[in-house]
Write a protein that binds this DNA or RNA. Structure first.
Lengths: 216, 216
DNA sequence: CGGGCGTTTGATCGGGGTCAAGGCCGGTGG
DNA sequence: CCACCGGCCTTGACCCCGATCAAACGCCCG
């Protein structure tokens, strides 16, 4: 489903990608790797797997999630082109990553990345910087989860989506993920998410446009 | 206030401090710095300040927090001896840090740390590892905030406290922070925190013991 | 055409927020 | 020494937001 945000033009300035030149060199490292394709719904890796690889998203959208012992599901975040997966010094991945849409990504073995970055310390620097960004995002998410009302959560989520998709000029935000994904990301139920979106549309804050579901 | 947890002995094994030998060398870097004393209630630095220093907590308890524009307060986490403050490559601190009890800490200028770690890359390695631990903790916190009931939150918080204070054999957990701190950490109100603790005591899960308030 | 999945919408319930009152303790000043 | 005050905590009454239970719709696909 896509949704046209009347408030789209009010979106804050996107946080600048730091060190465009350095990011260049980090992604250039990946650009030599072959592109792998993942089908929608398939997992890239699972929480607890040996963390042997780092990935860069080339195309598509993914979800990072954890399942609690009692079945409750938490979406840690959504990954989009340019994002890195599996950046951690832990031996095991902290969460499962699944493709929402068909995905293209490039893989780098951690072992090889270590040796590469040993020769070029600025690579490790960039990784560090990425991790700090992710840390800041995690803290913002904690604020969102602990202190925002359902309305604020959903509106904030839509504005985040619109910010990430700035490249297309129209204030139309595509939501490749399901309501369940959004709900598990915001700490709400699918019913509340659906109701809130409907309410925002009623307020004139946004308007629904066509449905374009991707095949499961 | 302190609180005796009957369930204390059930606390899980504390997540091992990784690389005891490396931690040694990292803290040995700090050990050459003079100890600074901070009064209870005083701030070490503020959200948005130039991030010019890294700190190591020697003694006492601190809170890391952010204030939303509308006054809502979020406790990101509590800091205890051995923890590092201000570890981030960002130019500005992401949150305010205040002393809860009287605190002792050692300071290291970021500039100097950079040059030190340039000569000894394993130092950067350790910092990286710390950041990953913090990342994992942040994700656990997100799970806590989004999907746990008030009972689970408070019980989980008390168990965390008991784990951190394992050194004293008695299953008594000291809570240096106020109810407001706990509430803002768990995404609850002080009334709910208070009620829940009372209920846990009634269930026999815990028992209240003496009140030892530190002077403001 | 029928079945399944994702979504929307409605009705009801309950956990936790809100408002309010009172208790406990330490500090302070008469 | 005691009365007062101000923080912090506890407890009670009430209410509302969002969860839960339930039903129906739209779209895709067999």
């Amino acid at each position: 489903m896509s949704l046209q945000l009347v408030a789209g033009h009010q979106a804050r300035v996107a946080p600048a990608v730091p060190f465009a030149s350095e990011t260049q060199s980090l992604s250039s490292l990946f650009s030599r790797q072959p592109v792998e394709r993942i089908a929608a719904g398939a997992a890239v890796f699972w929480e607890g797997d040996q963390a042997n690889h780092i990935f860069e998203v080339v195309e598509g959208t993914l979800r990072a999630l954890r399942i609690l012992s009692d079945g409750r599901r938490i979406i840690i975040g959504f990954l989009r082109p340019g994002d890195l997966l599996g950046v951690s010094l832990k031996d095991h991945y902290l969460y499962t990553v699944e493709a929402i849409t068909p995905v293209e990504l490039r893989r780098f073995s951690r072992h090889r990345f270590e040796s590469e970055s040993a020769r070029a310390p600025h690579l490790k620097e960039q990784l560090f910087s990425r991790l700090c960004d992710e840390m800041a995002a995690a803290q913002d998410q904690m604020v969102l989860l602990s202190r925002r009302s359902a309305d604020e959560k959903v509106a904030g989520f839509l504005l985040m989506m619109v910010r990430d998709q700035r490249e297309n000029r129209r204030p139309v935000v595509e939501l490749p993920m399901t309501r369940l994904d959004v709900a598990d990301y915001l700490g709400l139920t699918i019913e509340t998410v659906s109701r809130t979106i409907t309410k925002l549309a009623g307020n004139g804050a946004s308007r629904r446009s066509g449905v374009t579901r991707s095949p499961s």
